[in-house]
Design a protein around this nucleic acid. Structure first.
Lengths: 128, 128
DNA sequence: ATTTGACCTGGAGTGCGCTCCAGGGTTCAT
DNA sequence: ATGAACCCTGGAGCGCACTCCAGGTCAAAT
């Protein structure tokens, strides 16, 4: 099932979880924390139904989380998303976040270089 | 003060903290958690004195932590370090960790690409 | 009719990695 | 010799991001 295969009536929370790579619990947690762009609709009996757009938004949340943005900051971003004419601010947040991620990557890369040197050293020690 | 400027008698915990980029509390915490290669020596009055080697080891800890290795795994690594003839196992752990870090970097890079696309989109929206 | 299984809510619990604190001793410049 | 600044220990506390649980509703299959 790909994200484009969301039926008209929307999918259940467990399907949305699978599509997004999150867990059912995490989806409900994110919603509680105000990270949903809009609360997903509900079936007649009160169960969540995620539209394609909802599922795409989950992808955005994953993108931000997995690059290390804290929940608190994502909430600020989402709040802007709900505000008309906030495009410039959203852009600013994304650019600041990108800088942050690049610094992170840089630092990790530096430490990775050190790990590689250590590996080379051990390889010579063990095999050489 | 660089790592090569550690005097013969060793430096205090606060100096070691500055040299390693960790906090005094973290140094004591790591020691408690068994991450010290050897417990640092003590002054006559019982204060820790870090030698140059101690400080270099802190650098190794930082390298592993900042690339995401959990305390628990680092402890296993340190235990091997204290075991003679464990070089092959140490190498294996480092290589496994490198793979893990590379996967991490890859995933973050993928999400970063998505962020960049979003930034481009907003830039056109805002300026264009 | 009842069993199964997915869903619901509110709230408690967990694991991690620190971080802080109380209460006490030591070192050092003035 | 006194006050500020540093160090010690054991243990409590914290922030984060989930994760789990109890107790309940509901729909569909048997």
């Amino acid at each position: 099932m790909t994200v484009t295969e969301v039926p008209a009536g929307g999918v259940t929370i467990s399907a949305a979880a699978e599509l997004s790579g999150l867990t059912v619990d995490t989806l409900r947690y994110y919603e509680k924390e105000g990270l949903s762009l809009r609360r997903p609709g509900r079936s007649a009996s009160g169960q969540r139904r995620y539209t394609e757009e909802d599922v795409r938004w989950l992808g955005t949340l994953v993108m931000l989380r997995r690059t290390g943005m804290p929940i608190r900051d994502i909430r600020r971003f989402v709040d802007l998303y709900r505000t008309e004419g906030s495009e410039a601010q959203r852009l600013a947040i994304l650019e600041a976040h990108r800088e942050h991620v690049l610094e992170e990557l840089n630092e990790v890369q530096t430490h990775l270089d050190a790990i590689n040197r250590k590996i080379t050293y051990y390889k010579e020690l063990v095999n050489g």
